[in-house]
Write a protein that binds this DNA or RNA. Structure first.
Lengths: 224, 224
DNA sequence: CGAGCAGGATTGCAGCAACGTTGCGGCGCC
DNA sequence: GGCGCCGCAACGTTGCTGCAATCCTGCTCG
């Protein structure tokens, strides 16, 4: 799960990134509307958390442009302006939810989960490959009903691979899904995660293998 | 090949997923009509396998909505109701095929293959030449659903040729797409890649050939 | 019509870049 | 303070890739 936060207050951004990180979500941060559009054009996000007061305009103005680009993506608007008519306006503009500051992080998380559940954009509920079942809603992988207890990074790797099961996932794409686009990574630690994942998948006879294609990326497929 | 199965019985779903998996098909599973619409909105499927008895309604009601979304996509209806007038009704509703339970998996597979053969190209992001399908989005080539495990350079050659399928690609153009502008190349290694590609394409009976035009370049076309 | 030639095809080989694996240390979290 | 995740780096391994030598094929020109 990868979300884009459009918010100019750095403290808020950092706090949310930390909170979402505990639920294995990747949060990309865009401080302005321009940054947000650039990020959306170049990356695949599952949802947007949008602040209204931004240096270069009202966050709501982003919504039509977002809809033009990726019509079904869920948008949650955050704002200090919490009056009823403001909410109505935000929702009429196309937002899927509207949350007034100050808010409890728990509530935001719950609303995100709810949106993702009923959102048309986060599609197939589960992926099955071999004996492996990946539950995108519950964000967990299981083999023959037994839940795999995977650390965060490995889970993100597997999720990204399962989302595009049977198709190659480019290395750069994978890095983005696991680390986010601004998070630097200057080692082969992605390979390390893949390696550990492979061991666990084979130890549990998941019936899947992570096949690597040199110079391109990886792909998840049933083992022969 | 990626199919969407709309079916509420989990056993059936698991069995079909296993059967199709053996033929290198990807099966996404949607247990309800709502899930199906969500999945269709966000993923590229090559066909739909639709059960009639679903928790939230008759599967047939999905067909008009599917047609509105992706008009040409093949739909196979599965049902326990096999009477003739039921079949007629299903087909009149727009289904491409109608199969009564219980059915043989082999028959279903054959009908899927038949439908795929005569259906127009669903996803504009793929090119089909002979039995070869090149997925420009996923950057991979497959023959009859089986993914070709090609190294980077060969994949680039094939991609460039598939982009201009049936037309000649100048040698210099090909070199550019394979090596980039600044990368120098002072040997016939491009020919070497073409040669290796040819071998793999014929070994997998891809039904395509790389024809060379002396002094000009190459072109990809179905073999005779 | 045949020899010569130029461009293309094929293949072995060696270098090296990409990938795999593992251990370590730091850091955060119970 | 113990435990486990994670980034990192070192080192082993694989197999892609550029190169060149050799063979093949079609074109040209006398």
């Amino acid at each position: 799960m990868r979300l884009l936060l459009v918010e100019d207050e750095l403290e808020m951004a950092a706090a949310l990134a930390a909170a979402l990180g505990r639920y294995d979500m990747i949060l990309d941060h865009a401080p302005t509307l321009d940054h947000a559009m650039a990020a959306l054009a170049n990356h695949v996000h599952d949802g947007i958390i949008l602040d209204r007061q931004l240096p270069d305009g009202d966050g709501l103005s982003l919504i039509p442009r977002v809809r033009a680009l990726k019509s079904g993506i869920p948008v949650i608007v955050l704002t200090a302006r919490g009056a009823v008519d403001e909410r109505v306006r935000g929702l009429d503009m196309g937002a899927d939810d509207y949350l007034a500051k100050p808010f409890a992080v728990e509530e935001l998380l719950a609303r995100i989960r709810a949106l993702m559940r009923r959102s048309p954009d986060i599609a197939p509920i589960t992926a099955r490959i071999g004996n492996l079942v990946f539950d995108f809603d519950g964000r967990q992988a299981s083999v023959n009903g037994r839940i795999l207890d995977l650390p965060r990074r490995e889970l993100l790797v597997l999720e990204a691979l399962a989302r595009r099961q049977g198709r190659t996932v480019q290395r750069s794409t994978l890095e983005e899904s696991v680390y986010g686009y601004d998070d630097e990574i200057q080692s082969n630690s992605l390979d390390a995660h893949v390696s550990r994942l492979r061991r666990k998948l084979s130890e549990t006879s998941a019936g899947v293998e992570i096949h690597s294609i040199r110079g391109v990326g990886y792909l998840l497929r049933p083992s022969l």
